[in-house]
Write a protein that binds this DNA or RNA. Structure first.
Lengths: 341, 341
DNA sequence: TCCTATCGGTGAACCGATTCATTCATCACA
DNA sequence: TGTGATGAATGAATCGGTTCACCGATAGGA
């Protein structure tokens, strides 16, 4: 059993045919006679041949049969980001059509490990899902000269992009609270990963901030913006508690994620502030829990699954046609879902 | 840009060294002089060399640098299974140490596609996570003659195994409700995937059923067992509604997952049955939501993350030492977490 | 001056398949 | 019976690296 590995050559020998024929027997049955194919298959069986070695096949054919998914750490911590599962689902649905594998490339604790993984994986392309600007894996991926599709972040890389119009989406949320008559509106923001000097339009956080500002107009108060890190209810709760305890507390909160909005709701409840009577809250993502929160959360809905599907589709297409052509940028529509908060 | 792919040979040529040296420059810098290494790296830079082709390296070295994760459909579909994320986290934590990639192999709609993926992926081994007995991917994985570690299901395969003692765990849950004095106890069960003729001990569902029966003793009533399919709140809710509407309704429910227990809670609420006053509910998994349910769910706690970690660890070890030795079977301890339901 | 380590570099074998131009045999048809 | 067509099998080239036995040159020791 612990013998030497069985190779196609061994099988061919045993079946009394050439390696070439043996190869055909597996990969292109219609090219060999039934007799040969059967002999080969029988020999394989007898020898316990595990089938053509994928690594070798890959080398020869040049196709890896897998795509890499580079995502931010938060996915490993799954629960912090409820947008991930639908996104992943979209991706799997799409790649399921080929058969293509999905290689997860999580953010490693040691930053360069992740990059190394990117450099060494046998894949045909990468989907980059919402990773910070300066992630070393992004650079490594670009270095491979393989097709890449970026989702959400980082923007501005010279790759096809799938995402939403964050600015417009944020604006719609802001306009909504404005129409409700609020004029002290706080913002729970992500921390921007922007490096100094980069164009503002290239950063998701900045985009959304700009959108909020657009929509709020005169009601925009930069002193009511709070950065929350990480994207979890805890920090949002803290920030909201602090905001609500100020002399003139905000009457509405715009949160950059539902997760942050949940934290805000918690805080409001703790302080006995009624929602939406005393405080309006608008989230972002329309994650699965949003509709069942109490009260059901008003939020900006994103087509997560669709994003996954489109990204995977674009990548596979790029792989198949050899990645020439203008990098496409797709912006999916968002929708403000008005519920009871 | 759309030139021909740059090979190591091209780089070597340009740097004026042999391919061998060029290879060393990348993979084993200490073996070449600084001068050569720099020349090679410079040449690579100029030519836009993407680094040694992983597929080729893999072929030569025999290591894929990735492990495959075969999991049941439910994980891809919606991550409805709340046990999955912590498990995944455990796995990533562990494999992160190498650097090893994680190749997801979901259940495809067309059954054989999944198997094909298993057969063709460039991996060093597989983790099989709770898949049904007869999944074609399992057989394909065995056929690859690579190290495999099975988690939860299927049992009985001749591979190392990591799981819990389902029977004992179920028994402890049953004993608990028995001690509370219940004697009409219903069970919300999975559908067994057991093929006729298989030994009962090999099936998770059967094991748990047996455990419940052990623990309930005389209170065991097989007519109060309901199969719920799929593992989702919906079916559990239906089943519970039905049970509660019977002439002599159960006073306690043992559910094989928290997900099912949630469905039972929903049903109880709908009918105005107080929990735990009018109905006790015990779940299984201690998934993240359990503690925050209303009321907080009494459940059997499983060390999901630990399972992931152990499985990955065992697999990597098996890969490294060439998979000889007796297949180990590890059973992790479970714990009954008594909360308020 | 001669001998022997030491170091860096070379080149060919090899990893395990796929592919395709070529050869060989068979068969149908004129 | 000769000719072309058809189909099956072969074998060598190739994919792009890694590895290792070997070799030449330089330096140190006797």
């Amino acid at each position: 059993m612990a013998e030497r590995r069985v190779r196609l050559r061994d099988v061919a020998e045993r079946a009394g045919v050439s390696v070439g024929s043996a190869s055909q027997a597996f990969g292109r049955p219609e090219l060999v006679s039934d007799a040969v194919r059967e002999r080969v298959l029988a020999a394989a069986e007898e020898l316990g041949y595990p089938g053509p070695d994928p690594a070798a096949r890959r080398l020869r054919t040049g196709r890896a049969g897998a795509v890499g998914l580079i995502f931010s750490e938060r996915l490993a911590y799954q629960f912090t980001d409820p947008a991930a599962p639908p996104f992943l689902r979209g991706v799997s649905r799409e790649i399921e059509k080929s058969p293509t594998g999905l290689l997860l490339i999580p953010d490693s604790r040691r930053r360069d490990e992740g990059a190394r993984l990117v450099r060494e994986s046998v894949v045909d392309g990468f989907i980059v899902y919402s990773v910070p600007q300066n992630d070393p894996r992004m650079e490594a991926a670009l270095g491979r000269h393989l097709p890449i599709v970026t989702v959400d972040q980082p923007r501005g890389a010279e790759t096809p992009f799938v995402g939403i119009d964050d600015r417009a989406a944020a604006r719609s949320a802001a306009e909504h609270v404005r129409e409700l008559g609020h004029d002290r509106v706080a913002v729970l923001s992500f921390v921007t990963t922007l490096e100094p000097g980069t164009a503002l339009e290239l950063d998701l956080t900045s985009e959304r901030l700009a959108g909020y500002e657009d929509g709020l107009g005169a009601a925009w108060k930069s002193e009511l913006v709070r950065m929350c890190r990480p994207n979890a209810p805890g920090p949002a709760r803290e920030a909201t508690l602090e905001l609500l305890r100020e002399p003139s507390p905000p009457t509405a909160i715009l949160a950059m994620s539902d997760i942050l909005a949940f934290g805000a709701l918690e805080a409001a409840e703790e302080l006995g502030v009624a929602v939406p009577a005393g405080l309006s809250v608008v989230g972002f993502d329309d994650s699965p829990g949003a509709a069942h929160a109490s009260p059901p959360l008003t939020t900006v809905s994103q087509p997560h699954e669709e994003k996954g599907r489109l990204a995977a589709g674009a990548l596979i297409e790029a792989i198949e046609r050899g990645s020439r052509g203008e990098p496409s940028r797709t912006f999916l529509p968002t929708e403000l879902v008005v519920r009871e908060s």
